[in-house]
């Protein structure tokens, strides 16, 4: 058996395909739009995003949905590249959590 990382799924056993089709959740649509626009502006490259997503632990990779992985990778890249700051993200997240009616 060749060694493989947890994102390398080809040929593994798995259950039936869930063929249900549904529209994106609003936050998924926002994440999708953000990623494509940031890629088109050269904020980061597709392979950088893939690398970040692959750096999730096996459990997180499996349990996180597709757009959760994208959002994670985007946040990490923007932090690493200094586009956003840790403190700035904390402040913006707090403001949005409050605005959206949630709590920290």
């Amino acid at each position: 058996m060749e060694p493989r990382r947890h994102h390398d799924l080809g040929g593994l056993n798995a259950g039936p395909v869930d063929r249900n089709v549904h529209a994106l959740e609003p936050w998924e649509a926002r994440t999708d739009a953000l990623v494509y626009l940031l890629l088109s502006r050269g904020a980061f490259k597709t392979d950088e995003l893939r690398r970040e997503i692959e750096s999730l632990g096996p459990d997180e990779y499996r349990d996180a949905g597709y757009y959760h992985r994208w959002l994670h990778g985007t946040v990490r890249l923007l932090l690493e590249k200094g586009v956003i700051s840790v403190a700035g993200l904390a402040t913006a997240l707090e403001a949005r959590t409050e605005l959206n009616g949630g709590s920290l």
């Binding site: 936050w27 757009y67 946040v75 586009v83 956003i84 403001a95 959206n100």
Partner: peptide, 20 residues
């Protein structure tokens, strides 16, 4: 990341959008 997957993704996506 210690807890990113537990975040409210909606607030996080909005926050990232605000910042960029």
């Amino acid at each position: 990341e210690a807890g990113i997957l537990q975040d409210d993704p909606s607030a996080l996506a909005d926050a990232v959008a605000d910042l960029v």
